[in-house]
Design a protein around this nucleic acid. Structure first.
Lengths: 354, 354
DNA sequence: TTGTAGGCGTTATCAG
DNA sequence: CTGATAACGCCTACAA
């Protein structure tokens, strides 16, 4: 490994391309050169790479030898320009710092790279304007597919992606009108799971903190249904207009305590709200999980920073990525299956807040 | 935002491109179309985009209007094919899950994106074979520049990058033979800082745990020099052959206690070793920082998971990325400065282990 | 099974 | 200052 401590000029020990293979000016070999050396036409080299089954075994072997020898790799720009496709797959993440997203992208790449696709990551967050610009310009690269980790907010961008004619995999979200393919999760089930978990811990007076609409509402529906099935009371529901920080959860929990101090268990529709509730509970001297149990959703990075850590409903992010990659490979296979949507299993991460 | 809860077909409410702008088959407009609408030749449109100073103000304005109107963006593949350049900058990271690397990439992108560059992230880790393959194929994209976060291990790859003729920024590392540009850190200073910090806390019997060679040796040199300057004893040095996990630090610390139980302060040449030492100390009932102080290097993600958290010598990862981006912009400016290497300031992250 | 011809969309070069 | 021409490297379509 290169390092300060090394002595002497390391470049003398370097592995060099043998002189007879060196191409002019250090530029990579072109298809024409490979063809000349192999004694075939350029098309044949192209076929060896793209449609090996249409080339005689003998020729195939010879050309492949020359390819290996020269280290030839087709120019992706020329290929994309001519064929309108590239082997590039772009994974958009809304936050590069999220461990969860990172795991998903890793799983995604681990499936696609062995098949010759190149996975690159683009970050969308920042602002809507930024998101649009980035998507625009990266789609200019005409990737073979795009995957979104997190949600594409702007309907305008959703529409642009629809018209693009390349596979689009949405994940994490659960839109009613998927652009194309989807690896989603069931928000209803998440709520139901939370209720069952709290019931199993012996709680009978449950409360919910979450947004009134969207996925929050779905989690509430599942939460309520499971509670009813188990004969439990959902004592109180605190809705928040939007979730911007921990204070939303704190405020909601404070409001809850005002109204229903007898509540013993809270389901926060996302980890930010649940963590806020947890902090507020501690600030009020309420012992968790002794006096109060809290369940969140989503396994935020902060969920295990608390003590006790936040017990939360979530899913295997890596598996999500693997699924997304596998769906693409299936789609590109000779016999693609019809199913283009999949719902992931949910699971608990137990951390002590229940 | 798209969601399960929405009712009705949301696509009816979608923002559409006005019909008069729609191009055939939903494909993006080409330069020829823009030229036709603006009443100029395609070259002129190209010039408006690449060399606006060579176009008459009046024409410029007119063409720009049409560009805005049509949403034209040049096809990056065609551009790269013809000009041999792209606006793509690739940031290679060896581990997508590292918060530190993530911060660096963010800083990097925040500088380059406003200037019209597209920053994409590629992951190198896994294996050497993988690293080589990835670098090979991504360099095929002929990016405008590449940045490495972490170290390029294979001299072969280093050499390939040298011959490529595009700017290469290495960071984090501190090779004696930088491929091109460098945003590094001083390992010697890191050691010296650690010694001074421990001295300031009143310790006089210091120990070092680290690798015998490479950067570890440099940190030791600095550690020793600063200790000597302050009249302190470096009582003992435990070297480890390689660092693969927390157990290396635990074992090294156990060995240290065997030999020099009177030691009151340990500098672990990296956070993994230091964290291992911290764990072993606690396992032995040694109170940190009461009886023993520990300093690490690198600010691993685990450094603040301990209690007490690990006090460590590190640097501002985001600033590193910003520096790397700025160096590239400088290089591409009309009057590039000569300096292509920079050494970042180090700083302490205090977490309680001293 | 292999080869010839042409064009993907852009921009460098040279001419006007 | 603007335009015509050709070429970047490859692959699809068609021909042999």
């Amino acid at each position: 490994m290169a390092d300060e401590a090394k002595t002497g000029p390391t470049h003398d020990a370097v592995v060099r391309v043998p002189a007879e293979h060196a191409t002019a000016a250090g530029r990579p070999p072109r298809i024409e050169e490979v063809a000349r050396r192999a004694g075939v036409a350029p098309v044949t080299v192209s076929r060896v790479l793209r449609h090996p089954d249409k080339v005689k075994a003998k020729t195939l072997e010879r050309v492949r030898a020359v390819i290996a020898e020269t280290g030839y790799a087709s120019n992706p720009h020329a290929r994309a320009l001519r064929s309108g496709r590239s082997n590039l797959v772009v994974a958009f993440v809304s936050n590069m710092l999220s461990q969860q997203f990172g795991l998903a992208v890793r799983g995604f790449a681990s499936v696609l790279e062995p098949e010759g696709y190149e996975v690159m990551v683009g970050q969308t967050s920042y602002s809507y304007a930024k998101e649009s610009a980035m998507i625009q310009s990266l789609l200019g690269l005409r990737p073979a597919a795009v995957m979104f980790t997190g949600v594409i907010e702007l309907e305008q961008n959703r529409e642009a992606l629809r018209g693009l004619g390349i596979p689009v995999v949405e994940t994490w979200a659960y839109p009613p009108d998927p652009i194309d393919m989807l690896v989603g999760i069931s928000n209803y089930d998440a709520g139901a799971l939370a209720a069952r978990r709290l019931a199993a811990a012996g709680h009978r007076h449950l409360a919910f903190i979450g947004r009134a609409g969207g996925r929050g509402a779905l989690r509430l529906t599942g939460f309520r249904a499971a509670a009813a099935e188990l004969g439990l009371d959902v004592v109180h529901v605190v809705t928040v207009p939007e979730v911007t920080g921990l204070s939303d959860g704190r405020d909601a929990f404070a409001a809850l305590m005002e109204r229903e101090p007898a509540v013993t268990a809270v389901f926060g529709a996302n980890d930010l709200l649940a963590t806020g509730a947890l902090i507020e509970a501690r600030a009020r001297g309420i012992v968790v999980p002794g006096r109060l149990a809290i369940v969140g959703f989503g396994d935020n990075d902060t969920a295990d920073q608390m003590s006790p850590g936040l017990t939360t409903v979530t899913f295997d992010a890596r598996a999500l990525g693997v699924n997304a990659g596998a769906m693409l490979l299936d789609r590109w296979s000779d016999e693609p299956s019809v199913r283009r949507q999949r719902v992931l299993e949910l699971a608990f991460v137990e951390r002590g807040s229940v």
